[in-house]
């Protein structure tokens, strides 16, 4: 029994990492209607930026480093969209051009990361912490902070989407971009902002992934990508709330499954869930008209 609670506890940590990244991916998909296959590498850049800040001469606190890394990736995402992705998306009607461009971008960024930071496994400079009992669960302080960050971020996004004008414009654009454009929404600004948020969440997601996995490699974001895809597909592609629910389902399922199977295959469970979702609910739990 206690093992199950431990697994659920760690599942919640994974779910938090997943929620941050899956929502970041979904926000951008909703607005631009194509998948960013370089998202995993956005995460890696965030992770390594905060690693340099955290372990370098500056010794920045890890959470501050995480935020700075996130902001940097946000700015990078805006620039990449402005000068690379948006021009391609505008010029070519066929979806596969832009998908190949993001796929190619992922190759470029991955190799950029490994030529800057090398291929060795790195760690953040965080003190070893004794896990604390919280009810039946066992968490380190860092894990609790990660869960806290995810909850705060999800609430913030929820309030932004439902209460602010910008958020409402985002939803309108995501539902129908032509209509939104004719109804006076500044679609250019919203698109830029969405890329920034998507990059921000990717950067933060990359760092918390490195913290919870206790290792950073150039490819760790890319490898994590299919877990994110699983969460996104289970929840319904393009649905923000779907991504949150999908993250919890996939996060818990992978960790609980690790009790029953060799833990080195636990992430493969995410793929099994993805296939099950495709078989039984191909449009996801929160399907959206026109996006399925």
């Amino acid at each position: 029994m206690s093992e199950l609670f431990l697994a659920i506890g760690f599942g919640l940590v994974v779910a938090s990492v997943l929620a941050l990244s899956a929502v970041g991916l979904s926000l951008q998909f909703g607005i631009t209607n194509y998948i960013n296959f370089a998202f995993g590498d956005f995460m890696a850049i965030g992770a390594y930026t905060s690693w340099t800040l955290n372990t370098g001469p500056l010794h920045v606190n890890i959470w501050v480093a995480m935020l700075i890394g996130g902001l940097l990736v946000g700015v990078m995402a805006v620039l990449l969209n402005r000068f690379l992705l948006a021009p391609f998306a505008r010029r070519f009607q066929k979806l596969f051009y832009i998908l190949i461009v993001t796929f190619g971008l992922s190759l470029v960024l991955l190799n950029l990361v490994s030529s800057i930071w090398g291929d060795e496994v790195q760690r953040y400079n965080i003190s070893n912490q004794a896990p604390q009992h919280i009810g039946p669960f066992l968490f380190t302080v860092d894990q609790l902070v990660v869960i806290g960050i995810a909850i705060v971020a999800m609430l913030a996004i929820h309030f932004m989407l439902t209460r602010t004008r910008i958020g409402k414009s985002m939803r309108a654009m995501s539902d129908n971009s032509t209509l939104a454009m004719t109804s006076g929404i500044n679609t250019g600004f919203i698109t830029t902002l969405t890329w920034f948020l998507s990059g921000l969440l990717a950067g933060i997601g990359g760092t918390v992934l490195g913290i919870t996995q206790a290792s950073i490699t150039p490819g760790s974001g890319e490898t994590f990508l299919f877990v994110i895809f699983a969460a996104v597909i289970v929840g319904g592609v393009g649905s923000i709330y779907g991504a949150m629910v999908g993250a919890v389902i996939v996060g818990l399922a992978t960790e609980v499954a690790a009790l029953f199977i060799d833990p080195s295959y636990k992430l493969d469970i995410a793929f099994a869930i993805l296939i099950l979702a495709l078989l039984f609910r191909p449009s996801g739990l929160f399907s959206r008209p026109g996006k399925a």
């Binding site: 998948i35 296959f37 979806l95 299919f226």
Partner: peptide, 15 residues
């Protein structure tokens, strides 16, 4: 559709 298929396929190759 094309892009979801690509997502599933890339996941497949990683797994």
């Amino acid at each position: 559709r094309t892009d979801y298929l690509a997502m599933v396929l890339i996941s497949l190759s990683l797994v």
